[in-house]
Design a protein around this nucleic acid. Sequence first.
RNA 1: GCGGCCGUAGCUCAGGUGGUUAGAGCGCCAGAUUGUGAUUCUGGAUGUCGCCGGUUCAAGUCCGGUCGGCCGCCCCA
Length: 413
Amino acid sequence: MSKMQPVRGTHDILPDDYRRFAHVIDSARDVARLYGYREMATPIFEFTELFARGIGETTDVVSKEMYTFTDRGNESLTLRPEYTAGICRAFVSNGDLAQQLPLKIFAAGPMFRYERPQKGRQRQFHQIDLEVLGAPEPGADIEVISVAADILDRLGILDRCVLKLNSLGDPESRQVYRKVLVEYYSAHLDKLSEDSKSRLQRNPLRILDSKDEGDKAINAKAPSFADYLNQASRDFFAAVQDGLTAAGIGFEIDPALVRGLDYYTHTAFEFVTSHIGAQGTVLGGGRYDGLIAELGGPPTAGIGWAGGIERMMMLCNDPAPLPRPVVMAPLGAAAEAKALGLARTLRRQGISVEQDYRGNMKRRMQRANKLNARAVLIIGDDELAKGVAQLKDLDSGEQREVALDALAELLKA
RNA sequence: GCGGCCGUAGCUCAGGUGGUUAGAGCGCCAGAUUGUGAUUCUGGAUGUCGCCGGUUCAAGUCCGGUCGGCCGCCCCA
């Protein structure tokens, strides 16, 4: 621990930034609610086993990025690296939820991954998350993507994002394709990059997305997943595409879009942008029909996504300005006492009031100015005796005497 | 985990080839008739030059390490 610095890859969210942080969550929650999603929360840490099994032992997230520790009871626990596994665990833990299908959930909170930080990547970061459990129909895929698009639109950033879409097929198609791919790449093993050689073991589909020039040449002739999707997978993918088109949501098919977590099937999608550096994925997700059964629950379809709050913050507009306060500036003990009650009365009527209790007149005016106040209410002994206050408008500089009784109506206007 | 760039006041930065008390703008503080801001004027404080060690008579300036930031790879939100 050196000096008083936050841990690498973690950041304080100071008040100015927090407004934008909360703006992203508030907007997302609001849109999700319009679609009938309910908000819930799960613990920030779970048994390590949950993530290892759910996400996949060979994935990067599990094999090298988890914050894992042993607690005093000698249990291996892990700070959650993503939200889906925890929500599915909660579904399995709380049998009651299985009676509420399709279960439509919105959630938000911090995630933790031990990675090298860079722009748009932190060790503690925050996500908004949307999941639908118990809906195997493509309609759920369409809805979930539609919610995402509407949230990005609400934030004013949809036009700077592109929706990329792909199908990873059902397990049967995927297995066949995977086998074909491994055969193909194995025949070109000597020409593959080192990264891709290790991908061949862990996740051969990833080679398709390689940035290595040599790999790209090999990829040009690689067998295409589209040719290996079975009829059911093709129909499903077509239905999703048709639905998005009907909903007026533009997308691009990206055959190289392969998501890193093992549990995905069928639909995979990402909203990406080129405006925030190399980490261009703003929001991504897909279908995971096998996950809940894998965790020991009743076979239940699932689809969802996670969106990076910090990444959205980098793109989005500032939230609407806060209502400007009125500053209450009483001078003297009697006036201060009177002002306390008056301020509460005004606030109860929805007027933002900052009570000032320090300094001379000049200092108070300066402070009011820094607070971006719209007006200052000055109450001294003279005013107190007359039952009035001096109301100074800080924009025009005009000042006039108003009766205390009339203040609320006047300030509400 | 790998490769590259960077680290000077609260913020943005300037400080040729190492040489006396380290600078600017913005911001901050204090004054310009003690019940009136923002504008203007005047004055002031700002810093162990990220940290530790080394080379040197002498280091903000060179070297090594470390911490942190940024960019790329891996991967992802």
